[in-house]
């Protein structure tokens, strides 16, 4: 097969795949939309939360008060960020543990 033909086939395959993806997106329209809305909220929440955390340690109720977020939601995010290594647990303050962002080199940061 000539290079030209190969390229042509490749283009054709890419084209077909694009069509397939389009169809799949259409099929899953409602769940994609739901997920996208969820991700939007999560990104906003996480931005607010991480900004508030800055370089300081804080407890979940402190973070909730400062950000106006529901404390249950805050602890859920903290637990999640901890699972993915972005937050570490610090000392206890009263009945609550404090949490702190992990300072990462830019290239190491999780996408």
């Amino acid at each position: 097969m000539s290079d030209k033909n190969k390229k042509k086939n490749k283009n054709k395959a890419e084209q077909e795949r694009k069509e397939d993806m389009k169809r799949l997106r259409e099929e899953r329209k409602s769940s994609i939309q739901r997920a996208a809305t969820m991700v939007k909220t999560q990104r906003k929440d996480l931005k607010v939360l991480m900004k508030q955390m800055g370089s300081e340690s804080a407890t979940a109720p402190e973070l909730a008060q400062a950000t106006g977020m529901d404390v249950a939601q805050v602890i859920w995010y903290l637990a999640t960020l901890k699972q993915y290594g972005e937050v570490v647990e610090g000392a206890k303050n009263g009945s609550y543990f404090t949490y702190k962002l992990v300072v990462k080199e830019p290239e190491e940061a999780v996408a």
């Binding site: 407890t59 979940a60 109720p61 909730a64 404390v71 249950a72 805050v74 602890i75 859920w76 903290l78 637990a79 901890k82 647990e89 206890k92 009945s95 609550y96 543990f97």
Partner: peptide
């Protein structure tokens, strides 16, 4: 949480 905390607010 790697420990036992109350899910509503993270209190021990």
């Amino acid at each position: 949480y790697n420990r036992v905390l109350r899910p509503s607010d993270g209190m021990e």
